[in-house]
Design a protein around this nucleic acid. Structure first.
Lengths: 142, 142
DNA sequence: TATTGTTATACTCTATAACTATA
DNA sequence: TATAGTTATAGAGTATAACAATA
């Protein structure tokens, strides 16, 4: 059961880092930098992709929130020109959310800010840092 | 600059995992399991330690929130018998927050739930899992 | 009649301001 | 008068319920 123990230890450490609020604060700062009012709007922005426009409903499921809130979030993105609604040609009840060019730029800027490593990372050697990056990549993918 | 790149890659992956909401959902579930109404109450509970009772003000600073909210959080913990207020003998304006026996149990239970590894961890080999645990431990400490 | 998205409304979490007790 | 904590109140963020348009 050593693997399970290590896995648990790893996840506990992850939870600790999360609870330290560093990432949470970073997220809030990033919202401000992009003048997005809701944290949810940033999260939605990060989930959009050119050529892969979800419907409002899709977005709600992806974000695990109510459809009415997606309305507010897309309103916020639209107000800032980061996304636009597009009515489905075949079923006019349905609306797609398209990422705009500015939206793509904003996304890149957000990722830049969110990826800024914590000072904690200085505790690791160069080799350790590389190893950690490789392992976390595996976990994050998909 | 390879180290900086690796560090950035690692932190980006961490942000992705965080954004997946797995840990956030876990946190909410843990709140429910302990019937704690506010997420803040769980966070405060996890920061308390036997023999290391912070004052209300200390707790507010640690939690990076307003003193009035600490009042609500400690109320919640007290209602459930997880903590008690104790008036400072020398300055009767000051109150300490003591973790109770039940509080300690609840803490352990919460850590148990929060440390439950994500299915993502199955993507790593036993050796990788061990390495990851070691590296994250280094980051989480302190 | 059922479904997509919106609007109106209410609830939860957190902060600000006014207050009480002690120093 | 200043400080620690509390109470009352207001503000963000999110959900629920009623609604409009389309199917």
């Amino acid at each position: 059961m050593a693997v399970a123990d290590d896995a648990r230890r790893a996840w506990a450490a992850l939870a600790t880092i999360l609870l330290s609020d560093e990432q949470h604060d970073r997220f809030i700062e990033t919202c401000r930098a992009l003048s997005l009012p809701h944290p949810g709007a940033l999260k939605l922005l990060l989930q959009l992709d050119v050529g892969e426009s979800p419907t409002m409903g899709d977005a709600a499921r992806q974000m695990n929130c109510d459809a009415s809130y997606i309305t507010a979030l897309v309103d916020a993105l639209e107000d800032r020109g980061l996304a636009v609604r597009r009515v489905d040609a075949t079923d006019r009840r349905v609306k797609m959310v398209d990422l705009t060019e500015s939206g793509r730029d904003a996304q890149a800027q957000a990722l830049e800010l969110l990826s800024e490593p914590s000072p904690r990372m200085n505790r690791l050697s160069a080799a350790e840092t590389r190893t950690l990056a490789r392992l976390l990549d595996k976990l994050a993918d998909g």
